[in-house]
Amino acid sequence: MNIPQMQPLMPATHLASRLAETTAISVSACYQCKKCSAGCPLTFAMDLLPDQVIRLALLGQMERLLGSRTIWVCASCVTCTTRCPNGIDIAGVMDWLKEEALKQKAAVDQPEVATAHRFFLESIRKAGGRLSEMALMQRFLIYKLRRQPNLKELLDNAKLGLALFKRRRLRLGRPPVIKGKGEIQSIFQRAGV
């Protein structure tokens, strides 16, 4: 049997207290029932289970968490938060850790996911309030092909794009410019995104 090597941890409280200050989420309420991990549909792709994320947050293991895969493959389905008997917003912790990872310029385990989110927001900002699905898909495809050229993926995407186009489900032009374009710019500026 493969017994994992246990390393002693030096617990620190700064992470839990910062989390509580900025989001009012109290990870110390966790009694490790693991209901969050039992209901999570994405555990198959995670390096830490949701209950382990909460435990490590309580123990102040910032680096381990910011570099984890789990925070990025979490699909934000909020099943964990919904079922937590102690009212811990586990999905909220995942979001906070993602934002913190970018702020602290930590090594992001899933750069594609972070980039897709960033492109999505930039697309809204650039178009002045509404999303251009076409521009977003194109930009992301180029990014992906640059990282790892994959002819099959390119063809599959082209095929899907064509199928959607034929069914008039792709709008080629820009989204309409809204009157609140200026407001959108200031919202983005205030958020520093």
């Binding site: 979001d95 960033r118 999505f120 809204i124 509404r130 809204i178 609140g180 520093g192």
Partner: peptide, 18 residues
């Protein structure tokens, strides 16, 4: 004049924006 809510991208990257 509705605008996009930012969906999962916003709450993943910026609490405030979301």
């Amino acid at each position: 004049d509705w605008s996009c809510c930012g969906a999962s991208a916003a709450h993943s990257l910026s609490h405030r924006l979301s």
